[in-house]
Design a protein around this nucleic acid. Structure first.
Length: 260
DNA sequence: TCCTATGTTGTCAT
DNA sequence: AATGACAACATAGG
């Protein structure tokens, strides 16, 4: 689930539920999901409130009225869940932040690839994590420079968080399908026209997905996500969708539409 | 049993 | 030093 549009939707969800309430409790059922000791989380957050949010790529920052910022990364299967009463604790809500009046912000993470961390400096954190500017606000100039520095296939470059923070596997496939570029096209073999098409597709996919709150079924019918499966029919050709492994990730594409 | 899954990171070889 | 390929991480479901 969580690529840029999903995390942006999570951000808004948290903004709408969890700000300006005093944090009175913290629980973690599996400390492998914490990047710092439990005590450090308690010390930093109990008695504070979340007052603002910021997202860079797939990283979500929850600012408090203290000096500490909570960092959430959802991995492959995470999402936030706001609920009332401990007995309502959702499955896989391994980390929970308790507010007054018995409401909780839960960090659900079935596969436990996600985590929470703390920082006091978002910019330094962004740098240390090797994140580019968020893909949503990234300029074409910066995008081009970052891409052209690389020598490998376009798909892993697009998914590199230091190139365009927030692009993940389904978005990369969507972008390359819309831009009509083969995922194994070498970056150095792409002309300016294709790079521009990729950039424009990236922006369009991001804005559309955010507008639809990352509900794939609400995406326009021409979006690739609806046919991102072996054997489905391409919108543009007579051909069918095929699967490859590129950069170690499952990759779906239309061989006749996206030629090498 | 084996394979797959929307992510990141460490290791190893080049 | 930089880069890329690939396994590992943890878990559920087909």
């Amino acid at each position: 689930m969580p690529e840029l549009p999903e995390v942006e939707t999570f951000r808004k969800y948290i903004e709408g539920t969890s700000l300006q309430q005093k944090i009175v409790g913290f629980d973690c059922a599996d400390t492998r999901l914490l990047k710092k000791d439990r005590e450090v989380f308690e010390e930093a957050l109990i008695g504070q409130s979340f007052v603002d949010t910021q997202r860079i790529g797939k990283y979500l920052f929850l600012l408090t009225n203290g000096d500490d910022v909570l960092v959430m990364h959802f991995g492959m299967t995470g999402r936030p869940a706001y609920f009332r009463g401990l007995e309502e604790r959702p499955k896989y809500a391994h980390i929970i932040y308790q507010f007054e009046n018995d409401f909780f912000l839960g960090f659900q993470n079935k596969r436990k690839f996600g985590w929470n961390d703390l920082t006091r400096d978002i910019s330094a954190y962004q740098q240390a994590a090797g994140l580019s500017e968020d893909a949503r606000s990234l300029s074409y100039t910066h995008f081009l420079a970052a891409v052209q520095r690389r020598k490998t296939y376009i798909k892993p470059v697009l998914m590199d968080q230091s190139v365009a923070a927030g692009i993940g596997n389904w978005m990369a496939d969507e972008i390359l399908y819309q831009a009509q570029v083969h995922p194994e096209k070498k970056v150095e073999d792409l002309d300016e026209r294709h790079l521009q098409a990729i950039f424009e597709a990236m922006k369009r996919v991001i804005e559309t997905a955010i507008d639809k709150e990352a509900n794939y079924s609400d995406f326009p019918s021409e979006f690739f996500i609806h046919i991102r499966k072996t054997g489905e029919s391409c919108h543009h050709t007579e051909g069918h969708i095929e699967k490859l492994t590129v950069g170690g990730r499952s990759t779906y594409y239309s061989p006749e539409w996206q030629q090498l």
